[in-house]
């Protein structure tokens, strides 16, 4: 599929080595490379130069939308569209509507955050190429796509080997 680009990947066996390798790869001027691991590595974001996730903004906006929807729903149905006198309470009885507004805030914020995660990570993705099946278990990899600045296969292979990569392969990702 066209979505995946060709490139070169180095494989490491150790968390400390991949952190160092990611830092060096970044210092070599690459910007589109990916560091792949089976668990989030402390300090990897700094090493790769990844900015803080933008998802909290989505959460906040969705929460506000949820709150507003809860307010509008309870107000419009109870006070406008078909107002019914329940035990002499006011039609727009705000304190009683707070639980509904609260729950909808949480529901909207949570689902929107997960939706944003799917969008940010490009999932669901059907059968993406796998560089090495052990990457989701105990190995680590750095992949440099061929469209990155200053891409030179021989040079990258040499750099990866010098950084202690146990394997370097041309692949698609």
């Amino acid at each position: 599929m066209a979505k995946y680009t060709k490139g070169i990947a180095g494989i490491w066996d150790d968390e400390h080595m991949i952190l160092k390798a990611a830092r060096k790869t970044r210092e070599a001027g690459f910007t589109k490379f990916e560091a792949i691991s089976s668990y989030p590595i402390h300090g990897m974001e700094e090493a790769c130069g990844i900015k803080r996730s933008w998802i909290p903004y989505v959460t906040f906006v969705a929460g506000v939308v949820g709150l507003t929807c809860g307010l509008l729903l309870t107000w419009w149905t109870s006070a406008v569209n078909w107002a019914i006198n329940v035990g002499g309470k006011p039609f727009f009885s705000l304190p009683a509507f707070i639980p509904i507004m609260f729950e909808l805030t949480i529901l909207f914020a949570a689902l929107a955050s997960v939706g944003a995660l799917f969008y940010a990570c490009g999932i669901p993705r059907i059968d993406p190429p796998v560089i090495d099946p052990d990457l989701s278990s105990h190995k680590f990899a750095i992949f440099v796509p061929q469209n990155d600045v200053g891409y030179d296969e021989a040079k990258i292979e040499k750099m990866f080997k010098e950084l202690g990569a146990t394997d370097v392969k041309k692949t698609e990702y």
């Binding site: 990916e34 560091a35 792949i36 691991s37 089976s38 668990y39 974001e45 790769c48 990844i50 990570c121």
Partner: peptide, 8 residues
């Protein structure tokens, strides 16, 4: 499990 994915 790319670093960008883990960050999000």
């Amino acid at each position: 499990g790319t670093a960008r994915n883990w960050s999000h």
